[in-house]
Nucleic acid binder design. Structure first.
Lengths: 156, 156
DNA sequence: ATTAATGGTTGACTTAATCAAGAATATCAG
DNA sequence: CTGATATTCTTGATTAAGTCAACCATTAAT
């Protein structure tokens, strides 16, 4: 038996001492990488990814977003929304509905099938979130979400 | 004058009521998108991006990481590290040093030029972080970083 | 000494991000 | 109303990022 007193953490723990480990951009990138990998794994059986899931989620919100609004809210390029909605629409989960007040824009709404899919997907992403944030207590989790919200929506 | 009592926030604020707005994966994705866009803009004049910056940062840490360690710590594929180190090395900011204890692996260390570049880059990313997390008070910021750390490094 | 495992590298391939331009519609100035 | 300007969605091109399998050199295990 070697002098193996260290717990089986990770092997790169010594880099926690580096300046980088204190920078938000790095920590967010790493948290996102882990979290979205988890969520994507769980969503895969449903034919969804975190991206398409987020579009489906807003399509299910009853708020009838336009594609432009989806792009802004999700921090994506409008052309990316086109591709995401195309895929969901071809799959019958979502519909493009002509905006009565502006014939340029299209309202994105979930079909019944899409709503059912979302219900299942939502359970999976919540599960993934629980795993992903497993290191946080319940109160820490809510505090974290609150601060994340402020970071994600600066002025608003 | 229309009944425009709402402050000029964003135009998509109504989606804050959607379920999605309470999910960590979405909030993290959005925070990262905003944050890394800010950081990339500031780093661009130095010929860096957040990715290459993070490699340079660890190369400047004095911890002499191997490429494998960089990949693990940064949640990147080893082949991505190759490309990042290639670019930094060709630019003279970083060196591949043969690991005396394992001739397979290479230790990544910053050159003096790389260290100088990092000093300037670090100032810019800190500045970007201040802007990015401008919605948080000082205490909230430290609390946020602490929670982010727990989310980014679950067990460790 | 053979076998298996690891670290770096390359190449192929898929997905994501960025950007410019076009068609349809809406808004605004005069 | 008319012409100029802006907006929405769309397409296409281009670059960056992520994923994966295979290879060589080396190390570790049997």
């Amino acid at each position: 038996m070697t002098t193996n007193a260290a717990p089986p953490t990770s092997g790169t723990d010594r880099f926690l001492a580096a300046e980088l480990a204190g920078e938000a951009s790095f920590l967010i990138a790493r948290a996102r990488s882990r979290g979205s990998a988890l969520a994507n794994d769980r969503l895969a059986p449903l034919g969804l990814r975190v991206r398409s899931y987020s579009v489906l989620s807003l399509a299910c919100s009853g708020l009838r977003p336009t594609q432009r609004e989806l792009a802004e809210f999700l921090s994506l390029d409008p052309s990316q929304i086109v591709a995401l909605v195309d895929a969901l629409e071809k799959d019958g989960q979502v519909q493009r509905i002509p905006d009565p007040s502006d014939r340029r824009s299209k309202l994105i709404e979930a079909t019944p099938s899409g709503a059912a899919l979302y219900a299942r997907a939502r359970a999976l992403t919540c599960e993934a979130e629980d795993v992903s944030l497993g290191g946080l207590s319940a109160t820490e989790k809510t505090e974290f979400l609150e601060l994340l919200n402020k970071a994600a929506f600066p002025i608003g």
